Computed example of a mutant assay.
Amino acid sequence: MTLSLGMITCDSTDPVPLATWWSEQVGGTVADPFGGTFLMVRGDNVPVQLAFQLVEDPTPGKNRIHYDFAAPDLDAEVDRLVAAGATLVGRRGDDSFAWVTLADPQGNEFCVASAGASEAELSAG
């Protein structure tokens, strides 16, 4: 038997606006079958479902698992995300490979790299 990735879930004390924000960023739609306690972002442009679940007390500190995205124009995408409410955490890498770490409106860090980046390079983020 082998595992397959079903979705990536993010804890939140207020998951509805977070799911909405992410759906707008990835071009997906929000499914809310559980009345605001567990929401899923789906769509043709979302290869793995993103989920957001209501918790009273999220795990403190830096998130150990984060989203890595690829974009055809890294700088333009970072500018768009910051204008939409993301916070720039840092620019990383060098001339051979660069990525940008951002945080969503609730402080969850994620990375964006150039769409031409190899799979190995993305997993280093």
Score class of each variant (00 low, 15 high):
V41D: 05
D75K: 10
D75L: 02
K62F: 07
R91D: 12
V46F: 07
P58Y: 12
R42P: 00
A76M: 04
D79Y: 00
T59E: 13
P105E: 04
D104G: 03
N45Y: 00
G85I: 04
R91A: 13
N63F: 02
D79W: 03
L54F: 07
A98T: 15
D57A: 14
A86S: 14
R80F: 10
Q49K: 10
V78N: 05
L81C: 06
A98R: 15
G61I: 08
W99F: 15
A83V: 00
Q49G: 09
V41H: 11
L39Q: 03
D75S: 11
Q106D: 13
A71I: 07
Q106T: 04
A84E: 06
Q53C: 09
L54M: 11
V41Y: 03
A98S: 15
G93S: 01
G61H: 06
P58C: 03
V46G: 02
S96F: 12
L81A: 10
F69G: 02
F52V: 08
N45G: 12
G43D: 06
L39K: 04
D95A: 12
N63H: 10
R92N: 15
L74F: 06
D73N: 13
Y67S: 11
Q49N: 09
G85R: 05
V78I: 11
H66S: 13
D68S: 13
A84F: 04
Q49L: 11
D104P: 09
F38D: 10
R80L: 07
V41Q: 10
H66Y: 09
D44P: 08
W99Y: 14
I65F: 11
V48G: 00
G85E: 05
V55P: 06
Q106H: 15
M40F: 07
P72T: 13
F69K: 07
D75I: 02
A71F: 04
L39R: 08
N45K: 14
D79K: 13
D95G: 07
D104E: 05
A76D: 14
R42E: 14
G93I: 09
P72Y: 02
D68C: 11
L102N: 08
D44T: 08
G43L: 03
R42C: 01
L81M: 15
L102C: 05
N45I: 00
L81G: 01
F69R: 07
L54W: 09
D68A: 15
V46W: 01
N45A: 14
L39Y: 07
F38Q: 05
Q49A: 12
G90H: 11
D57L: 04
P105W: 12
A76Q: 11
R91H: 11
R92W: 11
R91C: 04
R91K: 12
H66L: 14
A83G: 06
R92Q: 14
N108Y: 10
M40H: 08
D95F: 05
P105C: 03
L81Q: 13
F52W: 02
L54D: 00
Q106K: 09
T101D: 14
G85C: 02
R91G: 09
P58W: 02
A51F: 04
P47C: 01
V55D: 04
L50E: 06
